[in-house]
Computed example of a mutant assay.
Amino acid sequence: MPIIGSGFFSVGTLLLFNAALNYLADVYIDNVASVLAGNDLMRSAFGAGFPLFAGAMFKNLGVGWASSLLGFLSILFIPIPFALYFYGETLRKNHSKIARKDI
């Protein structure tokens, strides 16, 4: 089961990153290098920070609850792409000075 779950996770991650990076490149066309570098910096910072607390989390909560906590946090993020789909145009028009307004 963990291997099957990892397969679904890998496919989901690939699809999410592909869509997110293409979206950022399309919306911030004049600053695409800076936007993609900022995205990479944030992803790398989370990746570098996770080992600092992961050992203590798995030791104190146990493998089952620590893994469940990560799963529950992932579930909390599911609505974000849908919210951006429905409210993205409004956010770009009203809150961003450098984003393209025509897409």
Rank of each mutant, 00 (worst) to 15 (best):
F46E: 01
N31Y: 12
L36K: 05
A66T: 04
L76Y: 02
F77I: 06
M42E: 02
I98S: 15
S6R: 13
R43Y: 11
F53I: 14
V35K: 09
W65C: 00
D40Y: 04
A56N: 03
Y23V: 02
I4Y: 12
S44A: 11
L24W: 06
A99C: 03
D30Y: 07
S34P: 00
A45R: 02
N18F: 15
D30N: 14
L21R: 09
S74L: 14
Y23T: 07
I98W: 10
D26C: 06
F50C: 06
I103M: 11
P51L: 00
P2I: 10
L70D: 03
L36P: 01
L84I: 07
A25P: 01
S96A: 06
Y85V: 00
F58E: 07
A45C: 02
G71M: 11
P81H: 07
W65T: 05
F82V: 11
Y28L: 02
V32N: 08
S67M: 14
N18R: 05
I98T: 15
A66K: 05
L70G: 09
L36F: 06
Y87F: 15
D30W: 04
F9P: 00
A56E: 01
G7R: 03
F8P: 06
A54T: 05
S10N: 11
A99E: 01
N39D: 02
K93V: 09
A48W: 00
G5Y: 03
H95A: 07
V63P: 00
I3M: 09
S6T: 13
G88R: 02
L69S: 08
L24K: 03
Y28I: 05
